[in-house]
């Protein structure tokens, strides 16, 4: 009888959750051209996760997922405020980026198992997820979906035509900040599975490729989901046979699909 290893099963569940995030948050980030923001937040969440690990090892138990969410949301809101005050958003992201990376290195340096912990956060591992990780990921994805279902129309209006949205009484800054918070939550979902460096590969690359294959909103969302799913599942499959972290393969597959999309005129 066919049996499936519990670690592999958790990895597959995580890939499905990541694909949902790529379809929703990833697509809207690409529409909003907030892709550099995704990179910045990934490093913010890295600092949060490192702090969570440090606290658990030396002071009191706290799930690194939780501290990563706190840090990411803090950075998201700070960048949202900077944008509202007409600051250069890229500069604000760059400053948050360097601030959070400095904090991440500081927290990681205070952990004795420095190398393995740092490596785990930077490249993640879809095949090393605990049940608790899956519950955190699932809860966060449900929260993202709830926000998305409730506000997707106004969010889309604000992204497409901020002036028109404002004329209808929709505050585009509030919705931009909401998108930043959704990105922050999405990044944390991906952090544990694919690591801070490759968050971009599974959150942004599928949506960027999907947008080249289709000219409709629904098409982009559905295709982003499947590209992310194929990349994630392919990553797990190749990892089983080669003992290399699945995130590396997932990133390569997603990027390969993007290159394929470039062939489409």
């Amino acid at each position: 009888m066919f049996t499936i290893n519990i670690w592999v099963l958790r990895g597959i569940i995580a890939v499905f959750l990541i694909a949902i995030v790529a379809a929703t948050v990833g697509s809207f980030s690409v529409f909003q051209r907030s892709t550099f923001f995704v990179s910045g937040i990934a490093h913010g969440s890295l600092a949060g996760a490192a702090l969570g690990i440090y606290l658990t090892l030396y002071l009191f138990p706290v799930n690194p997922f939780f501290t990563a969410i706190l840090f990411s949301i803090f950075f998201a809101v700070a960048i949202g405020i900077a944008s509202h005050r007409k600051e250069d958003v890229d500069v604000a992201i760059g400053i948050m980026f360097s601030f959070s990376m400095s904090l991440a290195i500081l927290f990681l340096a205070m952990i004795k198992e420095y190398a393995s912990v740092a490596w785990g956060l930077i490249i993640g591992d879809l095949l090393l997820l605990s049940s608790e990780d899956i519950i955190w990921m699932l809860t966060t994805v449900l929260l993202i979906l709830l926000f998305f279902l409730l506000f997707r129309r106004r969010l889309l209006f604000s992204i497409f035509d901020p002036d028109g949205a404002e004329s209808m009484g929709i505050n585009p800054y509030i919705y931009e900040t909401l998108l930043f918070i959704l990105i922050a939550l999405g990044v944390v979902v991906l952090l544990k599975g694919v690591g801070a460096i490759l968050v971009y590969a599974l959150l942004i690359v599928p949506a960027a490729a999907a947008k080249r294959f289709t000219a409709t909103l629904e098409g982009t969302l559905v295709l982003s989901f499947f590209i992310s799913l194929i990349a994630g599942l392919g990553g797990i499959l190749l990892s089983i046979f080669t003992s290399v972290a699945p995130s590396a393969y997932a990133g390569l597959i997603a990027t390969f699909i993007y290159f394929l999309s470039l062939l489409k005129k």
Binding site: F31, Q32, R33, F160, D161, K211, T216, L217, T220
Partner: peptide, 13 residues
């Protein structure tokens, strides 16, 4: 709205 203020990165019908 002014057409040149629209985000042309959103695939819409």
């Amino acid at each position: 709205p002014q057409r040149d203020r629209i985000n042309t990165n959103v695939p819409l019908r």
